[in-house]
Design a protein around this nucleic acid. Structure first.
Lengths: 272, 272
DNA sequence: CGAAACGTTGAATGGTTTCAACAAGAGTGG
DNA sequence: CCACTCTTGTTGAAACCATTCAACGTTTCG
């Protein structure tokens, strides 16, 4: 962390914060969550934390720094599937696979906490609330993936780049950083390219276009939004899929007390 | 089902089959699984079973027919995120979101069973084995999504189309159909295009190219593989992500009996 | 039969990549 | 501290791939 320009305030317990944002947890449950985690560990930049096909025994919480998940193709190309920001909890979706289907690598120096998979499994069995919170995180991971697929499949390169930078900004805001008008961003144009299905060269040109259009500037590791309204319009960015929603738990609870465990309403008949 | 040419033998209980392929279930647990499901219902082709932003109260199992999940963009374009085949269980990944993040529509006439979300939730709380099986299905959904993202982001159009057709073939095989050399396939070129981030017109040209290259033929609703080896080489297709693996359960069980609930091994130090 | 969805083809256009080259910044070791 | 290297950023020109527009054939279904 020689330069440290991208450094941000570390959350004391990211996992607890994330789970708690979904379901209110008692002090006792908070203690259980704390015990799922190993000691904090500092990993240098550009280190592979876990490789594809490695056995999966843990998830991770990032207290500080940036990382990403990717998959390599036989041809040597790579597809970045997700970026991980300070405060993010990662790898829950892999926890029930025998081997990891993606690698995880650090971008900057990163302080992370290992979360024991088996311990998570035990805890969720003992506490339904924890299971709900846990499943919520998995759902969020999935929702991000779906949005990413839409991005790559059906948006043009300008909207693609802008959309990703808006998403990252929104996620930083949710983690308590002020990213409304911009943020420090250690993502290289190569990483952006591999996430968005473009070449780094083209990402460069797209960034120039965005800059000349007065929409946003991404230079020297800093993203600045110049015209948020037009950016949102251009990309169709809707932060719903990253914002922490109260889970469906409330709904479930209501249904149970109504004594109607299996409602089979008629299937809709809309035609397209 | 006027023509019925694509009709296939319906599985008696797809949900039970899928869960059972992951974790061995007792007769008692099988009975619980059976009670999660509503009556079978036949839905015509081209019907929206569930729309984006609808509240999520159930998942579905397809006894027969094909369906797909998609997301619409403000521009009116759509991104197909997954196809659902006979025997597939769908929508588990959405079960813990408040509202659906994707629509689900039938392609052919479809016979499906509704699976009550609240009932699933209760069942998984009472039976750890069911929870494992349930989480495994969610993981598989996620793995398919990741592979799809790689497809759209980093494969050329020819490999993209071929890869999707290989995947569908493999999934049909796993469901007990003989699809080694080909299969009946009701997917239109428009659907393929919206799944793969291409235009229908271009999909048409790509299919011609594949046909002329002697690799595969997709015409009149039937896919035929002419040179599987070269197709696999061309696409880098590795069915691991669709094949039902024994869950990580065995591993977990071993760790628990070792009395080591939270192993925090050193993080790997590989550099890229 | 007629309508609607799906498939097919050509020609022109435009977006993206490729290749090649060079500039700028960050980190390393003498 | 400077020279060196490595990574990242930047630009131009040519080649390529995919889309668009427009038209027509085919199949399916009411």
């Amino acid at each position: 962390m020689a330069t440290g320009w991208w450094k941000m305030a570390a959350v004391s317990d990211p996992l607890l914060a994330r789970l708690g944002s979904v379901v209110p947890l008692t002090a006792e449950q908070g203690e259980v969550v704390r015990r799922l985690q190993g000691p904090a560990r500092v990993v240098p930049a550009r280190v592979t934390i876990r490789s594809e096909n490695d056995p999966v025994a843990s998830a991770y919480a990032i207290r500080e720094g940036w990382a990403f998940a990717c998959k390599m193709l036989p041809s040597g190309e790579r597809q970045v599937t997700d970026f991980f920001l300070p405060g993010d909890v990662i790898g829950f979706g892999n926890l029930f696979l025998k081997v990891a289907d993606q690698s995880i690598e650090t971008i900057t120096e990163t302080e992370l906490v290992e979360i024991s998979g088996p311990a998570v499994r035990l805890a969720t069995r003992q506490s339904p609330e924890l299971m709900d919170a846990f499943l919520s995180l998995v759902s969020r991971e999935r929702a991000k993936l779906v949005e990413h697929l839409v991005d790559v499949g059906r948006r043009n390169s300008v909207a693609r780049v802008a959309h990703l930078l808006l998403e990252v900004g929104r996620r930083l805001e949710l983690a308590g950083h002020d990213a409304r008008n911009g943020y420090a961003c250690p993502l290289s144009q190569y990483l952006l390219a591999d996430a968005l299905g473009l070449t780094a060269i083209h990402v460069n040109r797209v960034l120039r276009k965005l800059r000349l259009a007065g929409l946003l500037t991404f230079r020297h590791g800093h993203v600045t939004f110049h015209d948020r309204a037009r950016l949102v319009e251009l990309t169709g960015f809707d932060p719903a899929y990253v914002d922490p929603k109260p889970t469906v738990v409330a709904l479930f609870a209501r249904m149970q007390t109504n004594g109607s465990p299996a409602p089979h309403e008629a299937v809709g008949g809309r035609r397209h």
